[in-house]
Design a protein around this nucleic acid. Structure first.
Lengths: 312, 312
DNA sequence: AGAACTTACGATGTACGTAACGATT
DNA sequence: AATCGTTACGTACATCGTAAGTTCT
């Protein structure tokens, strides 16, 4: 049994049993792949792939039960390499963070700045995507850390750790009726809010689920005229007078956003919890822990390790 | 990176870094071991073993952090082979059970008989040992299933599943004062019991802890004249008149043990729970599940899988 | 002096790539 | 006809065992 044979099998399973594609992806010859897979099957005494004549068309029952073991095994191989690299080039390395726009734009900058100062030899790579995409990246190993407010705790393969809580805020132009009422000390209500066109996040992003939940709870519906993935876009259209915005409070900067006024809305929508996720069972290089501690001071290495060892 | 290199490393760690011993254990030459370990270290870019001149004297810090990954990886290799064997030779195979004498002698026979009838091609191997030894066997992979009343749930590497409950019984010769009192309907008390010399299990065996706990709770001490690993020995000496015995109720057979009388003692000692354990993370061949279900009908495959996936 | 690891070297094996073949759509 | 997997074959490299070398105890 060779590790490479296992790689071929895994890749074949991922590429719908197309051995030619496997060979290209792994930079080797197609006959080699074919042969090695056969030899592994011989050694294990089972057929992993269902063959229709000369074509692979799927996994056999033994293949189905063996594949997860192969995946775990190769995952440990990855861990071993990472653990080696961690000691070999102490300090140096790459840290890949996958985050939503909101996080990358508003929550991460201080942590990134401090981390860079602490680890000048670590190359930071920042990927943006939907919470769903972030989860995918973590699971396939192309990101070390994922940060998002939604969805991350829904995957058994991931460990999601609470980082910080935040609330929504309503933003309007200074000449908007709500701005006037706010200055007059009138408390904002959901009923009043939905009388205006709303601009906020797309479903699945940045606490949108809590906005929808609040509306559903009151059995009212809002006129959402524009949905965007990030607060910058939302702010732009609020400034244009298209409607009132609902964004994460963290996304409003009184000094910069001089054309806007923020009205606290924490009493209208449930508090949001931003989570940081890593892949369960992955070896984390020391600087990964450092970043986590920098970003979320409430977390430390022991807590992360504990969470990773605990099954959901 | 080759699997065999990892085997060498693991074995070296187990054999106190004696590469000569490693080579003998794995049936290869000593220079080969030396070389392969070095090549792995080169590839990972770390030194795994601390070297004093030409001698290996221990693990380096990187070695310490890398070794558990190697162990897990090799464990998955084992799983892969077992999974293969499970399908390759459906039905055929070996099932190794490690149990205490009490279990092997009294609890297991019906399950073994039924299992053998169900799987005539599975060779059953029965090992006896102390609960502690049973745990060791499971953890090193030399037994598939461990069965004991004590200790099995103390190891995070093992999954212990409750099988059945049982109580202790007091055994005496028919002419013993306690036998007379029993026939007269006098209820047995701990105070009365300890007025006689006691013969029972060794510490660490078959519910002995509950006997000690009952004595400690009442702040009394018994005159234990003989301790044995199994009920057969205890019964023999009770028959000889050396004292009264305390054994598992299951170990008394009214038809066979005609020279003895059993007095129910479930009100004196806490109920015991016999557990079945498997190594966490091991692939279990289908007949292993079958045996578990045969032995403990309250368990089934889904429950075992669930328990294995749940962290303590 | 002996035990233990490393280096050196030669033989066997094995993986890999190219090329030709066979089967399926 | 084209795509895809298997078979055949030769080369190159790696593993392994024997033997000699070196460094500690």
């Amino acid at each position: 049994m060779k590790i490479q044979q296992l790689r071929y099998v895994r890749e074949a399973a991922r590429r719908k049993c197309n051995l030619t594609a496997v060979a290209q992806a792994l930079h080797t010859s197609q006959p080699g792949v074919s042969r090695q897979i056969r030899e592994l099957e011989d050694e294990l005494g089972i057929e992993i792939f269902e063959r229709a004549g000369k074509r692979l068309i799927g996994l056999t029952p033994p293949g189905v039960s063996v594949l997860p073991i192969i995946e775990r095994l190769l995952h440990e191989v990855e861990n071993l390499k990472r653990a080696g690299a961690d000691f070999a080039a102490q300090g140096k390395g790459v840290l890949t963070i996958a985050a939503t726009h909101s996080q990358a734009r508003y929550a991460l900058p201080p942590a990134v700045r401090d981390f860079s100062a602490m680890h000048p030899d670590v190359t930071l790579r920042m990927h943006q995507g939907s919470p769903r995409q972030i989860a995918e990246m973590l699971m396939e190993g192309s990101a070390d850390i994922g940060i998002a407010t939604e969805a991350l705790s829904n995957f058994p393969e991931l460990v999601a750790l609470p980082c910080y809580q935040w609330t929504h805020t309503v933003i309007v132009r200074p000449d908007h009726p709500l701005a006037v009422e706010c200055r007059d000390g009138v408390a904002l209500t959901l009923q009043r809010l939905i009388q205006f066109p709303i601009i906020t996040y797309e479903p699945g992003y940045t606490g949108r689920s809590h906005i929808d939940a609040a509306l559903a709870f009151d059995r009212v519906s809002a006129n959402i005229v524009l949905e965007a993935m990030d607060a910058d876009v939302i702010k732009t259209y609020v400034e244009l007078g298209l409607g009132v915005g609902i964004v994460a409070a963290i996304a409003f900067d009184a000094r910069r956003d001089t054309e806007l006024l923020a009205i606290d809305a924490r009493h209208l929508f449930a508090t949001n919890l931003t989570r940081l996720a890593v892949r369960r069972g992955s070896f984390l290089r020391t600087y990964v822990y450092d970043f986590i501690e920098t970003f979320a001071p409430t977390l430390d290495r022991a807590m992360v390790d504990l969470a990773m060892a605990t099954r959901p």
